[in-house]
Amino acid sequence: MRNLGPVLTVVAALIALWYLAVVPMNAQWAQDQARRAGQDLSFTALVTDTMSQARPRLPAPHQVAAELWNSTVVEEMTGRRGVMTTGSLSNRSLIYHGWVTLSATLLGFAIGSALGIALAIGIVHNRAMDASVMPWAIASQTIPILAIAPMIIVVLNAVGITGLIPKAIISTYLSFFPVVVGMVKGLRAPDAMQLDLMKTYSANGAEVFAKLRWPSAMPYLFASLKVAIAAALVGAIVAELPTGAVAGLGARLLSGSYYGQTVQIWSALFAAAILAASMVALIGLIQRVTLRRMGMAT
């Protein structure tokens, strides 16, 4: 908690900068409106106007916060289609769209990390895989998968696979790589001395793996899982773009950009940020508990 003070200061400075930027970014529109109405705008009137436009170029932080609150709690509690009225989540609320994105993210993350771990085990135990697969795993990441996302979605749609699976595939592709790299490093972390010790115990390959390699890979695994889940979320969001803005945070971004609803874009962006942050924090929590129980906590 030593860092709490500095972190809060930096965050406060960022918000202050944001507020400062709001005025010049939105001033043009406010002045145009005033000129059309034949009024002269005083400085205070200008500032209050830039903070409360309906479609600002840069919405003020409190506008974004209000939109976040309105499109989650207020919409669900009092909205005509909210969960309180109809018993199901409103398709206008960010909770619904967030859940759509989150489910694809989690599915893709689960498949991706399982695949990553399996590949890493193969690479560590088989020289042929190490020599042939690893360079391609690296090369596969220079292919901008996000750029292929629309094609994968459209093609899978044509084959008849729709909904969750195509998005999850893209999340999988993005999340497997950090896990492979981290786990290969982790499974190779035991040094020669420890491996020799296992040999003096006449441990076989499976035992060396279960009792030495796997436990010592744990810190690496969690570090890479954190990267992977953030990547999986990005994958799910981008995968939602070409489906025509139906559901999900990506769809909110796209429809916001179609209709110039900047506040909606920013609130979707922040919803995504909150999702990412809470998932990374969750993995961090699991990491701390696991490593403590394994006696590896620092």
């Binding site: 860092n3 996000l146 969001i237 990506g250 796209l254 916001g256 874009i265």
Partner: peptide, 29 residues
């Protein structure tokens, strides 16, 4: 040192965000 201790966690957090989502905003600007 103060700035460093403050910026590292915030920067790490921001680096993990789906920044690609700012694309529509940038196109607008």
């Amino acid at each position: 040192d103060f700035l460093r201790r403050g910026l590292l966690p915030v920067g790490n957090f921001l680096a993990a965000l789906p920044i690609i989502g700012t694309a529509p905003i940038m196109v607008m600007w």
